[in-house]
Design a protein around this nucleic acid. Sequence first.
DNA 1: GCTCGATTCAAACAACCGTTTCAATCCTAC
DNA 2: GTAGGATTGAAACGGTTGTTTGAATCGAGC
Lengths: 212, 212
Amino acid sequence: MSVSTRDRILDAAEGLFADQGFHLTTLRQITQAAEANLAAVNYYFGSKQELIRAIFRRRLDALNAARLERLDAIEDDGSRPDLEAVLDAFVEPALEFTRGGDAEGQRFMQLLLRAFADRDTALHEAMRHEYAHVMRRFADAVSGALPGADPTRLRHQLDFIVGALTLTMAESALKDTRIIAAELVQFAAAGLRGSLDHRIPESARRTLEATS
Amino acid sequence: MSVSTRDRILDAAEGLFADQGFHLTTLRQITQAAEANLAAVNYYFGSKQELIRAIFRRRLDALNAARLERLDAIEDDGSRPDLEAVLDAFVEPALEFTRGGDAEGQRFMQLLLRAFADRDTALHEAMRHEYAHVMRRFADAVSGALPGADPTRLRHQLDFIVGALTLTMAESALKDTRIIAAELVQFAAAGLRGSLDHRIPESARRTLEATS
DNA sequence: GCTCGATTCAAACAACCGTTTCAATCCTAC
DNA sequence: GTAGGATTGAAACGGTTGTTTGAATCGAGC
């Protein structure tokens, strides 16, 4: 039994979207790569836009599930989880896909980056919804590992980490990703710890006061 | 004397590209917004692709010049610059454009993000070239403020900061940007300082060893 | 005031897009 | 094995794209 046409389309589309972007990739390229008929996309997904959403749903489900699974494993230990372990549970699954041998992991990161860049608000909202409970779980976990942190600030900082992770993973060569991920975890942990004292840099304070 | 047609096209295109992306924005929209004729884009720039490059050249020149100017001012003080001031010289000019009153600054950050996401290797290479000497200057400055840092690692960390800056500035609401920038500076400074002791998180080390 | 290059204009071009249509084919259930 | 829904196939549709063309208009220099 071979792979279903639906799945072949999903796989082919994911690769092409990552390489060329959403608008540049045509349904004719996709169906040709998937060895399916042109009409198959509209038959299975209704439209090109809904095909894109289906791709993200499939991968984000897997990615976030892996993250939560790792977080569960850490927290089940009973003792207070350390900060680096929590961050690693967030970062490492983003690399897990790379294990497959080909550039699948990096491809999906490219795709994620494109989703951030695109102004498709419907897709954006869907992703935010898909991410919401994961981010809350991790915010709680970080809070637990770092008592006394300001919640609003923590949310901003998690966005920093997502940004750093997404952009660097999409950019850097495949070989380096594992090392860079370890560096990112350490960088983020130090950054989070450093915000516990509320020092604001001199020049930034000047800027702030000048506009108040 | 009014603004030249060439400049009106650049301004209109920049706004539309930021809002809708490169491929989705049509030359007809651009020329209509610029109150110019459809053929004017090809007359002045040759093609849509070269129009995009011209936009980035104009803005990146200004942004990076402002960054270096601030860095010069800091280093001219004679004394060893402190880390937060160096980082602020990198981050703050990215917000300077916001001062104009409208959403121009955020728009350009959106645009930068799109450029990262796009696989236009020619544009990518041009940007890297445009950024190269700025990144080296800042890497040196950070090195000076943080003696003993590993150069390769420092380069990765600067990429983290660029990623965090670009993604969060493009995403966050206009009102918050100044506060978030101050938080980012502090976060990044703590992250950089924290890498001086070479601790690697437990779980990440396990992952590294499993694949060697 | 006329000339000539620079600029603007309306119109058309060929190519490609996502989607729709409807007949042909496949496959399961009776 | 045959009926009937699920899937595939080839072709065409209407619309939009970036680009090109060639004439009309403008504006400075003699």
